[in-house]
Each structure stands twice: as structure tokens, then as C-alpha cells.
Amino acid sequence: MDWGNILELSLRELIGVQAIVFALAAIGINVQFGYTGLLNFGQAAFAAVGGYGIAVIVTTYDMSFWLGLVVGVVGAIILALLLGIPTLRLRADYLAIVTIAASEIVRLVGRSASGRDIFGGSDGITGFSRAFYDLNPFTEPFSFGPFEFRERVLWVLVVGWSLVAICTLVVWLLMRSPWGRVLKGIREDEDAVRSLGKNVYAYKMQSLVIGGVIGALAGIVYSLFQGAMQPDVYATNFTFFAYAILILGGAATVFGPVLGAAIMWFSFQFIDLALRGAIQQDYIPSWLMDSNDVGAVRFMLTGVVLVLLLVFRPQGILGDRREIALDAR
């Protein structure tokens, strides 16, 4: 087994596009769940709406790329309002069930054959990323030690990490403002905040919208990178992953989602390559598992990590045990 190669490929994932996408999705969940205590299990829907915004506007309707960006973000805002209005007054688990239902609705409608002319069916939509890559200022690959990034990837990485940095900064600024303190107050004791005269419903709605828009950015980055918008990427596992990442890094911390995403994708890639290598070298007998099973094993490990973290270290890597959202309503 070529450990050097495995390590190199895994280190690429540490700052890779997947890490960016899930860092953004987790930052969004962090605003909603970490700071406000809202259980949004439909982050995949927000990401899908962002991705579809661009794909449908550019490919299906042949309109401008920038309009697509706007539609993606506005779509996420509308989705947040639609989900929030019926459920934000109800108990937390109702929001959880409604959001997870909404994310499946978005995916099922997106992949349906009857909407194929607009949403491209289960194959999804391609051919909308040209305008984005036309903006690419990089003309040659970038080398850094053993790592080499092609100009396309480099452009996505630069844009993506800038977005992550901006969102992190925004979250940091928001959460140290009086507005952020109200959110944390809602998480800790909603009734106490209400009795101080704050409109809890409006604050929750604002938090849902902000988190949703950041989630839409995740979908936009991912579909631009892939050059394709495929509905099945945004199944419920997308959301569960983002939760695992957030809890790994530390909910209600500014850098938790970013750290969690980087570590998660590094270990994902590492486990994947190491397992495949071990199977090729017959270190793992073929009756036990073959390379088709590697994907399943990775997902199982994610589940194990999620359970162990919540049982033994619910505050994650960066979190403060005194400040965790997990026991909020």
C-alpha cells in the first residue's frame, strides 16, 4: 500500500470542495440549531434550491448566471418562510419532521419525470457553469509541495473558501451582537426571552432564513463545481452529514463547522483509500468485504462517530460543555 499517496490524497480533501460544501451547510445549521436551537433537518432542501436556482435559470431558461444566483438565494428565503410559518410556533420535533419532509418533497419533485422539462428529472441538469468558469482568473495549475490543483479546481477552492470565510465572519459578528444574544437566549429559555418582550417567533424566523441562505450557498458551490445539478445528491443523508460535522466540530462555536468539515472529509477519504488498498492487497479477506462495501462502511463509521460523540462528548472538539444546544427544547 502506498501510504504516501493515500496521505496526499486525503490531505487534499482536508481543504477540498466537499469540505467547503459541508462547512457551508454546517455553518447554516449552526446558526439554526447551534445558536437558536431550531432542529432543521431539511438543510438538503435549501442546498438543492440553491443549486436548482442556478441550473434552472441558466440551462432551462437560458438567462443570466447572476440572475440564477439571486433566484437560488431568494428561493432559499422563500423555502425558509414556507417552512417556518406553520412550524416555528410548535415544538422542536415538529420542525424536524416538517423540514425532513420538505427536503424529500424538493428532491422528489426535482427528480420526477413530469418536471423533467424544467428540472431535468433524475439525471439532473448540466451546462450552467460556463459563466462561472469564464470568470476564472487562473490560467495555469498551482503547485504547492506535492499538491497540484488544476485551474478549475483552484478557482472553485478560492471562491468556496472565501465564501466560508465570509459566512464565518458574519456568524461571528452576528453572534456577538445583541441580536445574537437574543438567539442564544431563545435556545436556553424561550419563555424567559418572550417575557422580556422579544418577538421570539420573528427571531426564530430570521435565524431560519439566514441558515437557509448559507445552506443554499453550499448547493450553489457544489453544483458549480460538479457542473451538474443532480437531485439525489440532496437526499436526507446530506443533512445528517452536516449535523455530524457540526457536532464533531462543536455546535454553537464559530469555527466548529469548518474544523468538523475538514476533519470529516480527510478521515472519509483516508478510510476509503486505506480500506480499498487493504482489500487490493488482500489484508482484508474478500469474503468479509470487497471494494463495493467500502461506501457502506464509511457511512456506518459516520453513524458510530455521531453516536459516540453525543454520548461521550456532546460539545464536540471546540465546544464548551456549559454552552450546548442539545438539551434545549
Binding site: G37, D293, G295, A296, V297, A325
Partner: peptide, 20 residues
């Protein structure tokens, strides 16, 4: 809520164990 998220982890483990 921690229990709820733990149950998601359990479901991931069981689901992909089934696939395995």
C-alpha cells in the same frame, strides 16, 4: 434532542450495515 440525533446515528449504522 441529543437522543433524537443519536437515533439518526443508529439509523445510519443499521441502514449501511444492511447494505453491507
Amino acid at each position: 434532542i441529543a437522543l433524537m440525533i443519536i437515533s439518526i446515528g443508529v439509523s445510519l449504522i443499521l441502514r449501511y450495515l444492511t447494505q453491507f
